[in-house]
Nucleic acid binder design. Structure first.
Lengths: 210, 210
DNA sequence: GTCTATATTTGGATAGAC
DNA sequence: GTCTATCCAAATATAGAC
């Protein structure tokens, strides 16, 4: 490949996303970088993502990534933390006082909403979550644990006899995979529709035994 | 890192795995490379795996990888194909004439057996399966489809009213995630035990409606 | 057809201008 | 604090001996 032509993206333009006054303009580039990183890493995974690609998509120089995050690994950790804040907050708050089947349905629906509305974050999580090598185990295991624990707890509350250490992950997996399939192959279907089908598939976890 | 000491692995030894006569010695190094690639890629993923690491683990020179597979991408494709042969053959053959709940239980159990006995292949598949970028979509989408279709078909046979396009992936996801959790955190539990818990979680897919 | 170099490219990280 | 330019390690791929 020859020398790439000096990119024509308006260079000095200050890029004010939504001029809302004064303070909230500070970490504008950080947000752009995070968003771009989420997109690229969702496609190619952590190792497969080059910071050149992130910088190009974010519309910033590669040096800015280092000024804002220090290293590729710390960028990834910041991205995971950012994604997790949204995930865990949404899932943990979903029951909102409900109990039993209603609580489980709320959690299932909340996860499906994330799959639909935050596809980059969801796919990054799904793809990296299964890497069990000691490399990421430290930074990703707590993430998996926090998500699964929401399912475990709501199921345990609804059915104290349930074997939540296996059933919790099972319901989580059913929701996640069904959600990915929904978003990819049947996006025209509605959230209540898919929620109902998933709940219908796993509703026996709330019943005594088989 | 200084010059690595000239590796002490017995260099010229012909490495005859199981001297069984004549013909079946041909692709010995290919098998070693595939097995090593499965192990390393399960930990680090495709992009995170260096051919140096594969060559070292396989006990062959890096040049041999190129003689046998041509490129890193073609090695990965061969590995996926190899893993898929085992997966799809096992899952598709699992029902073995059974119908209804017994057929579904056989498929669930067969997937759990793979998770237990073929951890490298399972994790590679799980980790790479969720990458939706057009990069791997072409080579991995058929893989996902073949696996999910086994679940869809056995459920459709057992319960014609089931919404298999969503329920199939849901049961697959429940089994896969529960199996990974089993293998990682509770390996002391037995296969029939886990199979029973998973089946108990999703048994309602075989019933009329909720 | 497997090994030991070596070539070439990619990509993480840094230095210094502005 | 963002950019351009550069360094350097790592990794894909190739050449050629044996």
């Amino acid at each position: 490949m020859p020398t790439p032509p000096p990119r024509t993206t308006t260079p000095p333009e200050p890029v004010v996303p939504h001029a809302d006054g004064f303070a909230a303009r500070r970490a504008a580039t950080s947000q752009q970088i995070l968003q771009a990183a989420a997109q690229v890493m969702a496609d190619r995974g952590y190792a497969g993502t080059s910071l050149d690609a992130v910088a190009e998509l974010a519309g910033v120089a590669k040096g800015s990534i280092y000024n804002n995050f220090g290293s590729k690994e710390r960028l990834f950790e910041a991205l995971i933390a950012h994604t997790m804040d949204r995930f865990s907050a949404t899932l943990a708050a979903a029951p909102d006082g409900r109990t039993g089947a209603a609580a489980l349905e709320a959690v299932v629906s909340a996860l499906l909403v994330e799959v639909r509305d935050n596809p980059a974050g969801t796919q990054l999580l799904a793809a990296e979550l299964f890497r069990m090598g000691r490399t990421w185990q430290e930074s990703l295991e707590p993430v998996r644990e926090r998500i699964v624990s929401v399912f475990r707890e709501v199921i345990a509350q609804a059915n104290p006899a349930a074997d939540v250490s296996v059933v919790g992950p099972a319901v989580f997996g059913a929701t996640l995979i069904a959600g990915l399939e929904w978003r990819t192959f049947q996006p025209e279907r509605t959230l209540p529709d898919i929620t109902g089908v998933v709940m219908g598939s796993v509703r026996s976890v709330l019943e005594p035994a088989g």
